[in-house]
Amino acid sequence: MSGFDLARFMQRGTWGHGGRLGISLHAFGDDWVEMALPYSTDLIGDEASGVLASGPIIAMMDITTSLAVWQRVDAFVPHATLDLRIDYLRRATPGRTVIGRAECLRVTRSISFTRGLAHDGDPADPIANVSATFMLPTGAYPGSRGEGQGEGAR
């Protein structure tokens, strides 16, 4: 029995920033999530080339990595992005939908670690590599193994 129903969660519809960007659920498994960001001319960051701005890709990967944590702990827990690092491996191809895929690497009592890739059609030729960490302001992640100290590796 699933405590976090991702498909149903996303059925609430698209709202806010993610909705404005047209970000939607693409596919998911027990420990991974894929979201889609459709190409749109009003998301262009460089008018000369028509390439998407980096902001929408960060926004999608922030959402995707966050969802991957909830998928992993099988629960919706309000958490905050602590940091997000993105490497722009190559420019997204104008006109193509960008797919973001993320997985959760580990969950401690109050910190979760994720990584993700974005591609525009070929997962073997990614456009961006991401790592993001999240923190719980209060309480503990369900099923977390941390002892409340040494929140990081170890």
Binding site: H17, S54, G55, I58, A59, I63, L84
Partner: peptide, 12 residues
């Protein structure tokens, strides 16, 4: 604010 919107603002 959504984190991506903040990130987008920082990038701009």
């Amino acid at each position: 604010l959504q984190g991506g919107a903040i990130s987008g603002l920082l990038e701009v």
